[in-house]
Amino acid sequence: MIFRFLCFASLCFMLSCSATVERPEKINGVSYVASRDSIDQQHIDPVVHLGANYAAIMPFGFVKELEHPEITFNSDRQWFGETEKGVKQYVEILHRNQIKVMLKPQIWVWRGEFTGFIKMAHEADWKLLENSYSDFILAYARVAQEVNVEIFCIGTELENFIDERPSYWKQLIVEVKKIFKGKLTYAANWNEYERTPFWDDLDYIGIDAYFPIDSKQSPTLEDTKKGWQKHKSEMKNYSVKHSKPILFTEFGYRSIDFAGRAPWTVDRVDKQVNLEAQAILTQALFEEFWHQDWFAGGFVWKWFHKHDAAGGKDDNRFTPQNKPAEEVIRTFYKKYDL
């Protein structure tokens, strides 16, 4: 009798525990593109409907060329959403809708040249760049603290700058921490993160996840998932090594043929629109990562404020808006909500 009672009590305990198991918690984010003007509730409702619980807000600083050491930012010539005033307005309305924020200041090189190639020719120019970049990042660290954003990203795809000046970056993180008290990350390019030297000083290992995973014109879900295995194993081991979760500071695919072959490609090309490829690649990424306990979540690239006018069946760019990939994202975001 005692044995049967203990068995029954044990069964009840297990059933009680299973009934109260919480859903996995992930950062389900969008990379919210700055606009010319302020935004209002109609521009946030589609983000809420997507099931997103985070948005990356991206003010920009501009440099004239890869060897130019000075950064221009928060100027009257910039779009509203790229400035300090715009950041504050965006964050206020997002927070009002219970959407958390990663503030992610970024550099734009004239003509869209890759920021990872920024490199000075002389020591004096390196010093100028360091001073200018500190002004840029610390200004937005103060904004981040003022409006209580949850995550601050100290840079995006600046591999040459980091390779050449690692001690500067270590000190920059010290200065940022004096100002901002939330979580910190850096957005490393997909082939950069393993040599980034300061992950132990941050809260997340941030990766812009444009890994080449499938070379077919129209990939299958099975082949795409296989293409992730090597990268996934390496990221898991790296996460364990540093005792830090992996965060995809950007992820996404174009709705275009061969979208998984070189996902970082941003050129305006006339390749065939392929909505199915984008949806399959997006689904594979979610199925491979969103249930992993070492994986924090990510921010889909990219989301425009005028939802009804964005994306669509004839668009071969990155946004998933008004495409099958949007429904894929919605399904997983609502399954793995914070």
Rank of each mutant, 00 (worst) to 15 (best):
C7Y: 15
C17E: 11
C17Q: 08
S18Y: 14
I27M: 00
S31W: 01
Y32L: 09
S35A: 10
L50C: 11
A56N: 04
E65G: 14
H68V: 10
I71C: 04
T72I: 09
S75V: 15
R77L: 14
Q78D: 04
E82I: 10
E92Y: 08
N97H: 06
K104S: 10
W108T: 13
F117T: 03
F136M: 07
A141V: 02
R142C: 04
E150L: 07
N160D: 03
S167A: 10
K177A: 09
K181V: 09
G182F: 09
L184K: 01
A187V: 05
N189M: 13
N189V: 09
P197W: 14
F198H: 15
D214G: 10
Q217E: 15
S218C: 12
L221G: 06
K225G: 05
E234M: 03
Y238Q: 12
T249D: 06
G252E: 00
R254V: 00
R261L: 09
T265G: 08
D267I: 08
R268P: 15
V269N: 11
D270C: 13
N274E: 02
E276N: 08
A277I: 04
Q278N: 08
E287H: 06
D293Y: 11
F295V: 08
F295D: 04
G297A: 10
W303C: 04
G311D: 01
R317N: 14
P320S: 10
T331M: 02
F332K: 00
Y333D: 00
L338H: 03
L338W: 10
